[in-house]
């Protein structure tokens, strides 16, 4: 009874889960959408209300029914050539994604960590995350989304004079000269906002939290693994992603109320895996910032081995469908 891991060839995070699955004597099918059609194949038939069929990747074959869990990590898109034009190649690539990927997406939702449609929904709406997090009892900073400079400056003044401005999605791209650029969270005063322009583009502003440290809390089913992230530089205090060499980590147990809320949030979002970011202030309040339904976890040594173990177990024993 194999576990299926969807990811690209170079993915040492997935490798760590595969090592754990081997320790559990669970066969692994590792599939990248780019494996189709040369290195992978599928035949599936819809009959009796479900898809049944076979999936072959390299020398490994499984029936779809046998799959005990699916870990959606970082699959790459199909790349084919030789159909006469780039447009035709692109069509075939999409057919692979929609056809074989579509059948896989039809596997029972409770098998997935996490289902692609759920990942997309969570990733695409940070504002929705805040609504659900608040409803589940987590503490959420005052937040404004606007493209209006005056409104943003007014909000900053209302919430203490300073705000964090952050992007909604991954902010890494190529700049005008082809250089790799990134946008990190910045701390701004109301007057700094007034002197700038939003130009109608949506910006996300949050009340500035004077954090003692951050926490990355990783949830796998009902198991929670939290690590304090201590800032080692002024840049890291603004956004710890900007100076990762300066960071130190310490394993921590989340307060029971936070743990309960996180488990509620996971259920509300239909997630079996999630990486949540918090800021912790002097009063000990855990401020929820966001949840990444496919967030990285392998870089924090204090918790990563236990997370790999939990993911492997989750892929072996899916919970009963509700």
């Amino acid at each position: 009874m194999p576990a299926l891991i969807l990811t690209q060839r170079q993915d040492i995070t997935a490798d760590r889960v595969i090592v754990k699955l081997r320790e559990l004597d669970t066969p692994v099918i590792r599939l990248d959408y780019a494996d189709f059609p040369a290195g992978a194949g599928m035949t599936a038939q819809f009959n009796g209300g479900e898809w049944a069929g076979i999936l072959r990747v390299g020398s490994r074959t499984t029936t779809l029914r046998e799959i005990t869990g699916v870990y959606y990590r970082r699959p790459s898109t199909p790349r084919v050539t030789g159909h006469g034009s780039p447009g035709r190649d692109g069509f075939v690539e999409k057919e692979i994604t929609l056809g074989f990927g579509g059948v896989l997406a039809a596997l029972p939702e409770h098998l997935w960590l996490g289902h692609p449609a759920t990942l997309l929904a969570v990733q695409r709406s940070k504002p929705w995350q805040l609504v659900l997090a608040d409803a589940c009892g987590l503490t959420v900073p005052a937040t404004m989304v606007t493209g209006d400079t005056a409104h943003a400056a007014h909000f900053a003044a209302q919430v203490g004079g300073e705000v964090a401005v952050k992007s909604f999605g991954t902010a890494a791209f190529l700049g005008p000269e082809g250089e790799q650029e990134a946008i990190y969270t910045r701390r701004l005063r109301a007057d700094e906002i007034r002197s700038a322009s939003l130009l109608g583009i949506p910006h996300q502003f949050q009340r500035w939290i004077n954090a003692e440290h951050a926490v990355r809390l990783t949830a796998v089913d009902d198991e929670l693994f939290a690590a304090e992230i201590h800032f080692g530089s002024p840049a890291a205090r603004l956004d710890w992603r900007s100076d990762q060499d300066s960071l130190t980590y310490k394993r921590v147990q989340p307060p029971p109320a936070v743990a309960d809320s996180v488990r509620q949030l996971m259920r509300r979002m239909n997630l079996r895996y999630g990486a949540l970011d918090f800021l912790i202030d002097k009063a000990g309040t855990w401020w929820f910032l966001e949840i990444n339904a496919n967030g990285q976890w392998a870089w924090i040594d204090e918790v990563s081995d236990d997370i790999a173990d939990a993911i492997a177990r989750a892929l072996t024993k899916a919970p009963s469908p509700e």
Partner: peptide, 14 residues
């Protein structure tokens, strides 16, 4: 000023 606020904080990373 043709750049919105969010893009003015862009950093080049190695």
């Amino acid at each position: 000023t043709a750049l919105p606020l969010i893009l003015r904080g862009t950093q080049t990373i190695p």
